[in-house]
Simulated assay, not measured.
Amino acid sequence: MNNWDAMSAQEIERMARNIAPGGWSVERHKPLATLLGSCVAVCMFDDIAHIGGMNHFMLPSMSRSQGANDADIDNLLSGDYAMEVLLNALLAQGAARHRVKAKAFGAGTILTGSASSGIGVRNAEFAREWLQREHIPLIASDFLGPWSRKVLFVPETGDAYCRRMATTQATAQGIAREEAAYAQSLQRKPPKSNIELF
């Protein structure tokens, strides 16, 4: 067991596993980190079992030929998947459902006048609503505003560190590119299988 209290945020960041957009991880001893723009990261943990995890999701604006309703369903499913997979992985590794708590961050508007400004608001609302529906207390959050955020999470203790960063144009464009690539990956159809059943 590490003495996390004695470590600085910089030391924790050096040890952390990075969670990219669309990713998630459950850990006991390794800290987790992510960089957020309009995306949201939710940290869920059981501080008695000393286990926790983090996801990083975006509810993308998807244009599909099937119509707006299908796009809205896809939007919800991407967020639902990120939350469900994280909670189920925690429970599978020994967390107790009634002890799980959450901390959530992100949903910033880093590019003014961009389509991402509405996504951040929807992300924050979605995260709050999902946790409330699942009866998981949201004990800390930092949402919205004109910042990107660096989030560090220590699963073993449930401690989270959030640094708001004044976003330069270069940083904003980098985060926006990463989030756009994630959004496009959600729109791609899975490759056709060449497996024949007999």
Rank of each mutant, 00 (worst) to 15 (best):
E27F: 02
G52R: 07
M83Y: 12
A41N: 02
V85E: 09
D70L: 08
G37N: 14
M15E: 09
A68T: 08
I73T: 09
W24C: 06
G53L: 02
D47N: 12
H50Y: 04
R17T: 06
V85S: 09
I51P: 05
A41L: 09
N69C: 12
M62Q: 11
A71E: 00
I51S: 07
F45S: 02
L77E: 06
A33T: 10
C39E: 11
I48S: 05
G52H: 15
G53S: 13
I73V: 10
M44R: 10
N18T: 02
A49V: 09
R14M: 14
I51L: 04
S65C: 15
E84R: 13
G79S: 11
V42A: 07
L35G: 05
E27W: 10
H29A: 09
I48M: 06
C39T: 09
I19A: 06
P21V: 05
L32M: 13
A41T: 07
L76R: 13
G23T: 09
M58C: 14
I19K: 00
R14F: 05
N75F: 09
C39K: 14
A49N: 14
G37D: 10
L35I: 11
G67P: 03
Y81M: 03
G22R: 07
D72G: 08
M58K: 11
A20E: 08
V40Q: 05
A41W: 05
Q66Y: 02
D70F: 08
G67A: 00
D72A: 15
V42L: 13
G22I: 01
N69K: 04
M58Y: 01
S25W: 04
S61I: 11
M58L: 11
S65K: 06
P31N: 12
G53R: 01
H50A: 14
A71W: 07
S25G: 12
A71Q: 00
W24P: 01
Q66P: 05
L35Q: 15
R28W: 10
K30E: 08
D47H: 08
A68Q: 07
S63H: 11
V26A: 12
A41G: 03
N55R: 00
S25I: 04
G53C: 01
N55P: 01
I48P: 07
G22N: 04
